[in-house]
C-alpha cells in the first residue's frame, strides 16, 4: 500500500474564496523521493500543509500511513508520522539552544528523558550537526539552522518528511548542505521525501516529479519525461533546465541530440559523441 494517498482533494482557505488546490490526486510509495514543482502561488505549499493535517481538505481525502487526516482524534499520529520542514529557518526553531530545539518534538510526544537525550544526539549526528548541540540557533548559518530543523523532525522518527521550499532562503552552499543531508536520509534511512520547490535542479534529483499550476496537477512522471515537455513547464511559470533548453535549440538547428539532456556533463558526452561521428 502507498504511504500517502491523496484522492480528489480540493481546498479553499475561505468559504467564498477560490480553490487553492483543485481535484488533486496522487500516491506516494514508501521510500520515494518525490518533488512537487510549481511557481509561486501555484498551491504547492497548501498541498504540503494538507499532507500533515495542518489543513484538512474541503473535499476529497488525504491518507497518511493509513490514517485519514480528517480523523481529528489521530491528528497527532499523522504529524508524528509525517514531519515537516518549513521555508524560513528562523521561524521554526523554538528553543535558545540547538539540542533543546531538537528535543522539542519528542518532549511534545511525551518520550522518556533518557530516550530523548539518545535520539537528539543521534538526529544531530545524522545531519552532521553533532558538535553544535550547545550552540544558540542565531549563531548558526542558514544551512546549519535548516539542518537543525531537519534534526528536530528526524528525532521524532517520521516515515515521511515534507520539505516546504526549505532551501528557498538559503545561499548556494546552504542549499547544497541541506540537499545532501536529505538525499542521504532518503537513501540510507529509507525516509519518504516530499520535496516542494521551484528550483529545477533540485527537482531533477527526485525519483518522480509532480507539476502543479493554478492548484491542479498538470503532469507527473520521471524528471526526464517532465523536463522534455518544455511548453508545459513554461505554461506553469517554471524555467526549463538550461541544458534541456540548449539541447532543444540545437535539435531545432538540425543537430542530432536527445531531447532529455539535463546536466552539463550529459551535454558534453553527447556533443563529443556527435563530434566523433563526423
Amino acid at each position: 500500500m502507498s504511504i500517502i494517498a491523496v484522492s480528489d482533494v480540493s481546498y479553499k482557505y475561505r468559504e467564498d474564496a477560490g480553490e487553492a488546490v483543485k481535484n488533486v490526486s496522487f500516491e506516494v510509495e514508501e521510500g520515494e523521493f518525490l518533488a512537487i514543482l510549481g511557481a509561486n502561488g501555484s498551491g504547492k505549499s497548501t498541498l504540503a500543509k494538507l499532507i500533515n493535517a495542518l489543513f484538512v481538505p474541503t473535499s476529497g481525502s488525504v491518507t497518511v500511513c493509513g490514517i485519514d487526516t480528517r480523523d481529528e482524534s489521530r491528528v497527532w499520529d499523522v504529524r508524528a508520522a509525517c514531519g515537516m520542514v518549513f521555508q524560513n529557518p528562523d521561524n521554526q526553531l523554538v528553543a535558545t539552544i540547538v539540542e533543546e530545539d531538537v528535543a522539542f518534538g519528542l518532549e511534545n510526544l511525551g518520550v522518556a528523558p533518557d530516550e530523548i537525550r539518545r535520539r537528539v544526539t543521534e538526529a544531530l549526528d545524522a545531519v552532521g550537526m553533532g558538535e553544535f548541540g550547545k550552540s544558540a540557533p542565531h549563531m548558526l548559518s542558514g544551512g546549519q539552522k535548516q539542518r537543525v530543523a531537519i534534526a528536530g523532525v528526524l528525532a521524532m522518527k517520521p516515515r515521511v518528511i515534507v520539505f516546504d521550499e526549505s532551501t528557498a532562503m538559503l545561499d548556494p552552499v546552504g542549499r547544497a548542505e541541506v540537499m545532501n543531508v536529505v538525499r542521504r536520509l532518503n537513501r540510507e534511512a529509507g525516509i519518504t521525501v516530499l520535496w516542494i520547490t521551484h528550483f529545477m535542479d533540485e527537482a531533477a534529483q527526485a525519483d518522480r516529479i509532480l507539476v502543479i499550476d493554478g492548484g491542479s496537477l498538470k503532469a507527473c512522471g520521471a524528471p526526464r519525461d517532465i523536463f522534455r515537455q518544455t511548453a508545459l513547464l513554461r505554461e506553469a511559470g517554471l524555467d526549463v533546465p538550461e541544458m534541456t533548453a540548449l539541447a532543444q535549440a540545437l535539435r531545432a538547428g538540425g543537430l542530432c541530440l536527445p531531447d532529455d539532456i539535463l546536466t552539463v556533463d550529459e551535454m558534453v558526452v553527447e556533443l563529443c559523441r556527435l563530434k566523433s561521428k563526423t
Binding site: 523554538v94 533543546e100 519528542l106
Partner: peptide, 26 residues
C-alpha cells in the same frame, strides 16, 4: 508574521500545550 509561522511549525511538531509533555533535561 513570524509568530504565525512559528505557531504552525510548533503544531507540525505536535505541540499541544503542557499536558503530557516530558522534558529532556530533568
Amino acid at each position: 508574521r513570524r509568530a504565525d509561522e512559528l505557531a504552525l511549525a510548533m503544531e507540525a511538531r505536535c505541540y499541544r500545550g503542557g499536558r503530557g509533555r516530558t522534558r529532556m533535561k530533568q
